[in-house]
């Protein structure tokens, strides 16, 4: 009698445990998946459950039939990041981790190029930093070759390739010996980005002018004004012509264009004419009527 009672109890407990396990759910999630791919999640058990996939990069909620496979399309979870998967049924809570990684295919980049204006022939004067992104604006963590190209018009481009680390590649280059607007481009995969850097000449090295009569006035003009490396001084730089005559002064602030500044001043016989650009003084002329 006692024996049969014991058997009954054991049978009851076994049945209970079997029933519990028959309804308990489990979830199977890939440990990691690439952004832009469909994620397939498998569950065991039977009945209905709630699936939550959450993280700072996304949140998905589904009511699911246990035992079925669930597909999460790329547009629902495309942000790279760490996600926690919760499967909640009436009797249990299952959890799992899911890492969405960025795609190794670079699609775009953010390119910081500095400075926007710098002197010619400056060592390591040009700096470029490229942050690389996939098609879903995730930082591409896999190393990528990034091509940096600095080009001045009518010169051979200077090209460097740098491998990215943790989504960023950077370079420092010398500025060119010639002045001008340089194109600075970074390219990786399908992404390119262009910046313009102005490589500017230095101050005038030597200043000379000449004068000739034009009608009843005197036309003064500088010789092409260059810096000490031979580049024409920047357009727009002010050159001041001054004429002193009979205690009176006449001045003209004329801007350089293609290295030359010119102006018309009164043609007074005996006038003394000087020229200056910033702190650089040029030659002095005494106008004696063209002789």
């Amino acid at each position: 009698m006692t024996q049969s009672r014991t058997i009954c109890v054991v049978l009851f407990l076994s049945l209970s445990i079997w029933t519990q396990s028959a309804f308990a759910a489990s979830v199977s999630v890939p440990r990691s998946a690439e952004a832009g791919r469909t994620i397939t999640i498998s569950t065991d058990g039977s009945g209905v459950g709630h699936l939550y996939i959450v993280g700072p990069s996304g949140a998905v909620e589904r009511t699911i039939q246990l035992g079925a496979r669930i597909s999460i399309p790329p547009d629902e979870i495309s942000n790279a990041g760490h996600y926690t998967v919760f499967l909640i049924t009436s009797t249990s809570t299952e959890t799992a981790d899911l890492d969405i990684t960025s795609s190794p295919e670079a699609a775009s980049l953010s390119f910081l190029a500095r400075p926007s204006r710098l002197p010619v022939s400056l060592q390591k004067g040009v700096g470029g930093v490229a942050y690389i992104f996939d098609a879903y604006h995730n930082l591409v963590m896999q190393s990528q070759p990034v091509h940096f190209q600095l080009t001045l018009p009518n010169t051979a481009p200077e090209i460097h390739t740098v491998d990215s680390h943790q989504g960023v590649a950077w370079i420092q280059m010398d500025s060119s010996a010639r002045a001008g607007n340089a194109s600075f481009e970074a390219a990786v995969g399908k992404g390119t980005s262009l910046r313009v850097l102005q490589e500017v000449p230095g101050d005038a090295c030597q200043l000379r002018m000449s004068a000739r009569p034009v009608g009843d006035r005197l036309h003064v003009q500088t010789a092409p004004l260059r810096d000490c490396t031979g580049n024409l001084v920047a357009d727009g730089t002010i050159v001041t012509f001054t004429e002193i005559y009979d205690g009176n002064r006449s001045t003209v602030d004329a801007p350089l264009k293609n290295g030359i500044a010119e102006a018309d001043i009164p043609a007074n016989r005996g006038a003394v004419i000087t020229v200056a650009a910033g702190e650089v003084l040029g030659n002095q002329l005494r106008w004696n009527g063209g002789q």
Partner: peptide, 26 residues
């Protein structure tokens, strides 16, 4: 989890421009 963050300066503070957990971080 390991996060990678990129911050950029604003007038008064640094702000997070990229915040991404990535298992692929070396």
């Amino acid at each position: 989890a390991r996060y990678v963050a990129v911050l950029t300066p604003t007038e008064v503070s640094w702000k997070v421009r990229i915040l991404q957990a990535d298992a692929g971080v070396e």
